[in-house]
Amino acid sequence: MKMNDQFRISLSTTTVCLSLLLHLLAGGAAAALPRIVSFRNGFTQLFGSDTNLLRSDDDNSVRLHLDQYTGAGFRSSDLYNHGLFSARIKLPSDYTAGIVVAFYTSNGDVFEKTHDELDFEFLGNIKGKPWRFQTNLYGNGSTSRGREERYTLWFDPSKAYHRYTILWTSSKIIFYIDEVPIREILRTNEKGGDFPSKPMALYATIWDASNWATNGGKYKVNYKYAPFATEMTDLVLHGCISNPLQQLPTDNCVQMDQQLETIHYNNIVPKQRTAMKRFREKYMYYSYCYDTLRYPVPPPECVIDPVLRQRFKETGRPDFDRRHRRHSRKRSHGLSSQIYEIQDED
């Protein structure tokens, strides 16, 4: 059986948590559990003109446009002390090189030097090639210690909506795509203050990142294909609304965090863990833990797998030298190009 077939079968067996979540979103449980939030009740426009951010008639969906003048973005009206943040997203189609669509949490506008952040960032696409994206974590202003992982998707995200979810509790962070957990980050003593701990808002943006997003800036945004549109619907904000300057969490926030720790969606069942392992083995192509150019000594929370170390070599991404010698680059091109100039896979 091929790996793709094994992975798809694994995905089909990991629907328990997603089914429960969709049941909750549809109103099948008490109001305290996750529910869809309309735009007017949960969000505010961040940037872009009225023609760059279009809301649906029922106010449960929003379309973000990027044109040659500006992109667009919105954020949650409130900040949350831990939470479950989710949306069904359809990405732009055709040639989208240089475009970044981001779905993330942050408090950078409040804590400029000590901000926290959790990211889904979709990195543009050359038509016919797999979509690439990254997840990242910053804690307490640790921008010099980015914890990026990069992946390809096993589907075309411009053809249909898929649900992207960030679950953030006091003990762990889990990134989901549909029913598949793709990354789990545990709070450990080794991570220390780098684990996000201050209230964050949810953001969604589309913007021009021609200088780095697609193959290290090799492919730029081509506005011949503009406007580029990403659509988001069924947005979920489930957490304790918090004052970011408040020193200690309120009793309500403590109770909400306890609920987030115990809801079914927080616990990865064995079949899901198998799906996550297979996803990471097949579709992860960069990991900061194996990037010895950036980190000669791996960050303390990294558990190094000798097999993966051999696979990722010193750059944190698979060694394509044997298959792609014609694309090799000299180290003198700089560290950033070594990290972000990712060869196309066969």
Rank of each mutant, 00 (worst) to 15 (best):
A32I: 06
D344S: 12
A97K: 02
D116F: 05
R329P: 01
N81E: 09
P92L: 04
F279P: 03
K271C: 10
Y104V: 01
R163E: 15
R309D: 15
N52D: 03
L237C: 06
L118M: 08
P130L: 09
S76Y: 02
N136S: 10
K271I: 11
G42Q: 05
N211C: 07
R323M: 14
S77E: 09
A229L: 10
A32T: 06
D321R: 14
G98E: 06
C289S: 09
G146H: 14
V101T: 14
W168P: 01
H82E: 03
V110I: 15
L260G: 00
T188D: 04
A209H: 11
V180G: 00
A29M: 02
T233E: 11
R278L: 15
I126Y: 05
N60T: 12
P306A: 08
Y176M: 02
Y295I: 05
R40V: 09
S328P: 02
E190A: 14
C240K: 00
D178P: 04
M232T: 03
I339R: 15
R88W: 01
C289L: 09
T51Q: 11
S332R: 13
Y285T: 09
Q310W: 08
E261C: 05
Q246V: 07
N52W: 02
T315G: 11
K191R: 15
K330L: 14
G216R: 04
Q68P: 00
I174A: 01
V180N: 13
L64H: 02
D291F: 07
K90L: 04
R331G: 11
T165K: 00
F85T: 03
Q310I: 08
S86I: 02
P196D: 03
N4K: 14
A32G: 06
D57F: 08
S210M: 07
K282Y: 10
T169A: 01
V62Y: 03
I241H: 07
D59M: 03
N107T: 06
Q6C: 13
K113P: 02
E301H: 13
D156C: 04
M256D: 05
A30D: 13
L20S: 10
H327L: 15
Y285W: 13
A32S: 10
I173A: 00
M276H: 03
P92W: 04
T315C: 14
I89F: 01
G124H: 07
R325A: 15
N60Q: 13
G192Y: 04
T44Q: 11
S19E: 12
D116S: 07
E261D: 09
W168I: 00
M200Q: 10
N211Y: 12
F122W: 14
E112I: 13
P157V: 06
V221L: 06
T105Y: 01
F47W: 12
T135H: 10
F111S: 08
G334H: 08
S142L: 04
P157D: 06
E281C: 07
S86M: 02
Q338C: 07
K277R: 15
K129G: 05
P318W: 09
I126T: 11
V180S: 08
L293D: 11
L167G: 00
G42M: 06
R40D: 12
C240V: 00
D344M: 07
S77G: 09
L245M: 13
A201E: 08
